[in-house]
């Protein structure tokens, strides 16, 4: 218990970020027309691809002679990139359709 409290006070900035981000996330979505739910979900999907940063850090500090770890890390970065790049490109494709018809 004491450990836990210590940990909270040591990481209080992180805890602040978490709490505020939760409210922000709810607030940002709350006023979105349902028309945009699919692109929004897709965009959010791309944003959580930020997990790739963890993958890069992990791969970047693996001992270069440890091939198992290198391969796992490589896979993680590939998967993360798929999530990020695929996510943003798909969202962009969806949204360019909305755009096109606006001009017409």
């Amino acid at each position: 218990m004491e450990n836990f409290l210590d940990w909270i006070s040591e990481n209080v900035e992180m805890v602040y970020i978490v709490v505020l981000s939760i409210f922000l996330g709810v607030e940002v979505i709350g006023r979105v027309p349902s028309v945009l739910h699919t692109p929004l979900m897709s965009g959010a999907n791309a944003i959580h691809g930020v997990v790739i940063i963890g993958a890069i850090i992990v791969l970047g500090r693996v001992d270069p002679s440890n091939y198992t770890a290198l391969i796992i890390g490589f896979l993680a970065v590939v998967l993360g990139t798929l999530n990020v790049v695929g996510g943003f490109v798909v969202t962009d494709r969806m949204l360019s359709m909305f755009r096109k018809k606006k001009k017409a």
């Binding site: 922000l24 996330g25 709810v26 940002v28 979505i29 709350g30 959010a44 944003i47 959580h48 940063i53």
Partner: peptide, 18 residues
Amino acid sequence: NPVMLTGGILVGAAGTLL
């Protein structure tokens, strides 16, 4: 890592609401 934290939680909260 603050950017992973904001990105992740933002999507977590927004996704749950959605």
